[in-house]
Nucleic acid binder design. Structure first.
Lengths: 110, 110
DNA sequence: GCCGCTATTCAGTGTTACTATGTAGTGGTA
DNA sequence: TACCACTACATAGTAACACTGAATAGCGGC
């Protein structure tokens, strides 16, 4: 993956995953696949699983183990109230940053 | 500073500073002040200086020492060709990320 | 002589995403 | 039976980056 993207994902990937979960509960393998669909083709599985453990420890998600027909049991993550609050904060932080950067892009773009 | 902002700045602060330098050459103290003006009120001076050393080592900027009337000599940084190329890459990476996030924000915002 | 402002530097810390690998369950197939 | 492909999760070690909390240094005014 591009080094720039790697660094830029720090702090945003968590929000991205929470945003995905805010639409619908999902398990790790599924989330990875969904990220790939959305253009994040190079995000490693290990990265996603590590992130899921983190957001579980922070108490942003509820976890349920569900048997799979095709492999080991799935750990299905669903966003809880705390997670939704955090996601809102994330969006406001993101919006602030995005506005400043858009401004800078315009200024420099002459 | 909010922890979210801290993490989100990883990878973007470098681009922000390069964007500032793309408009006009500047020195560390000045850059810090300019960031504060633009709403990044809590970015530590030490952070900016460390970043400047990094981008100098990467060869994105040229440095000139200029005496000051008000204190120790200033180290004035100006963006060079390599820096401009890197900045362009930065903008394309940023745009990609911003588009995906905007999309996600819309989807989740129902 | 001391304080405030300007200006830079640096050691140590925490967080995060990546690499690389390992473990495990299921079904198909030769 | 043995092997492979796909599904599904876990983890140890690494690199990069922003922050904290200092220290150093030059200048002017009181």
């Amino acid at each position: 993956m591009g080094k720039q993207m790697t660094e830029m994902l720090k702090g945003t990937l968590e929000g991205i995953v929470l945003a995905i979960l805010s639409v619908q509960a999902a398990y790790g393998y599924e989330i990875t696949a969904r990220l790939r669909e959305q253009g994040f083709t190079e995000i490693a599985e290990g990265t996603v699983y590590a992130l899921l453990i983190r957001i579980e420890q922070k108490g942003f998600v509820d976890v349920e183990k569900v048997p799979s027909e095709k492999g080991p049991p799935r750990k299905v993550y669903s966003l809880n109230v705390q997670g939704r609050e955090f996601l809102e904060e994330f969006w406001s932080t993101w919006s602030f940053l995005a506005e400043r950067l858009e401004q800078l892009h315009k200024e420099g773009g002459n």
